[in-house]
């Protein structure tokens, strides 16, 4: 009889532990990579034919994000969380006489709204920061470098499926947008500032839209 009472008590303890909420993890770190599309004005490139520009619009992107969720985030609730994002992107194309290799790096503080569910999370975030832009182009075999570093902002939407309390797989749609009406070009030991570039109709807005897939780590 004592044995059965002991086993019953033990079973109740185990059931009680299993029914408790998992430990709260305050932060989430995620990394992603995937295809990216360059939208808007192409500024400072070596060839302005439609075919060349269209091919140059397809690229790749990658990002790393950190968000601080805080101590409490009960399920089936919304949570506002600050964070930081970094996104890189690359677009390249080659023509008979020239080539472009555009690299962009964007970093910005973020404010995100998380919808916390037991097995998955959804998020929407936005921020403003700085974008470093460089086009390492080649013209008739000689290197030419275009720089166009500007302020930029982003809007992102993502979803995560939890594989374990500390880890999940996620997808993210990022849109980083900026504007420029000038660039600097370095060629043959000289540097010029090109303002309202006539080959780019004076410049304007451009952005990159990325669909990224990756992993999240909760800690």
């Amino acid at each position: 009889m004592k044995k059965y009472v002991f086993l019953l008590g033990l079973w109740m303890q185990v059931a009680s532990v299993a029914a408790q909420e998992p430990p709260v993890r305050k932060s989430v770190l995620s990394v992603h990579a995937g295809p990216s599309w360059y939208l808007g004005k192409m500024i400072g490139i070596t060839n302005h034919s439609d075919a060349y520009r269209n091919a140059l619009r397809n690229g790749i992107a990658w990002d790393a994000d950190y968000y601080f969720l805080g101590d409490t985030h009960p399920f089936d609730s919304f949570k506002l969380a600050p964070g930081l994002t970094y996104q890189g992107g690359r677009y390249a194309n080659t023509h008979d006489e020239s080539s472009d290799n555009i690299q962009m790096h964007y970093i910005a503080p973020q404010l995100a709204l998380f919808m916390m569910k037991r097995n998955h999370h959804l998020s929407l975030s936005a921020g403003a920061g700085y974008q470093h832009y460089k086009d390492k182009s080649v013209v008739y075999g000689k290197t030419r470098e275009v720089s166009m570093n500007k302020l930029a902002c982003n809007l992102s939407a993502g979803g995560e499926y939890l594989l374990a309390p500390c880890m999940g797989v996620s997808a993210r749609l990022n849109w980083v947008v900026t504007s420029s009406d000038s660039y600097s070009v370095r060629y043959h030991g000289q540097k010029w500032q090109v303002n309202a570039p006539e080959l780019s109709d004076g410049g304007g807005c451009f952005s990159h839209l990325s669909l990224l897939f990756g992993m999240n780590l909760h800690f």
Partner: peptide
């Protein structure tokens, strides 16, 4: 004329 890029043929 600063709108002209002298490196583009």
């Amino acid at each position: 004329n600063e709108s002209v890029d002298p490196t583009i043929m």
